[in-house]
């Protein structure tokens, strides 16, 4: 009896190619989200009216509408408007990165706004410089607060790359669909897909566990 391992082995080139596209897409989404999201989050906390409120509104709208809708809106009308063919990978990367950027900025911004003022006050009266206060006080405390929420968000973004298949990005889900149309063994094929996703998530989760151990600790006082 054929197992999902046999199917993976037989279509390994296709699966590897799809996996590569998924990982590339995820890396773009993660890096841009964490980098630009942090920057926007910091500015959103600093300039609440000018940046904070619009950023929060964007985050609300982006998280309230299914990813699929954005992908279709951004891909097909954009090609018609520009009169050119856009590689769907770029559309997916831009759309999913934008969603991640605003989700991360919302997270970082709210953590910055909720930062306990007493720790800044203590830093002031102890004569700490602004640089030391940021690097040694604010950043470590904020990291501890943000990491537990940030990592699951990035795993959700990884899973959202599945939607890219609907605008014809040749990522792993699309590969699985194609293989299924030939083999017609959905349980085997989607089990294989799940296994590959777990393989990608494994190092991510390992990194998350390491970060949690390294940075998070219950710091609440009783």
């Amino acid at each position: 009896m054929e197992t999902f391992v046999d199917i993976i082995t037989r279509y390994r080139q296709a699966f590897l190619s799809g996996l590569r596209v998924t990982v590339e897409l995820a890396l773009i989404i993660w890096c841009s989200g964490v980098l630009f999201g942090s920057v926007i989050g910091i500015f959103a906390a600093k300039f609440k009216k000018a940046i904070g409120i619009p950023a929060r509104m964007c985050s609300f709208v982006l998280s309230g509408i299914p990813v699929l809708a954005y992908l279709f809106w951004a891909h097909y009308p954009m090609q018609a408007i520009l009169g050119t063919v856009i590689n769907p990978f770029y559309t997916a990367a831009v759309v999913l990165s934008t969603i991640n950027i605003f989700a991360v900025s919302d997270l970082i911004g709210s953590q910055l706004l909720d930062f306990p003022e007493q720790y800044n006050v203590a830093a002031k009266v102890c004569g700490l410089s602004a640089r030391t206060t940021i690097l040694k006080i604010q950043l470590p405390i904020i990291l501890r607060q943000v990491i537990p929420a940030l990592l699951p968000l990035q795993v959700i973004m990884l899973q959202s790359t599945l939607f890219a298949s609907l605008i014809s990005v040749e990522e792993i889900f699309r590969v699985a669909q194609r293989v299924n149309s030939v083999e017609y063994k959905p349980v085997h094929i989607y089990t294989a897909l799940a296994l590959l996703f777990l393989l990608v998530c494994l190092p991510v989760n390992g990194f998350a566990i390491w970060l949690r151990r390294r940075f998070t600790r219950n710091i609440s006082e009783t």
Binding site: V125, G127, L128, I141
Partner: peptide, 29 residues
């Protein structure tokens, strides 16, 4: 600050640092 400094009733110790590190950090500067 810190020629003029304050000790608060609620201590305001930095929670991610040990008590020793809380004392040492301002001395680095």
């Amino acid at each position: 600050w810190p020629e003029l400094t304050v000790v608060f009733q609620q201590h305001f110790l930095w929670p991610h640092l040990t008590l020793r590190q809380n004392i040492e950090l301002p001395l680095r500067e």
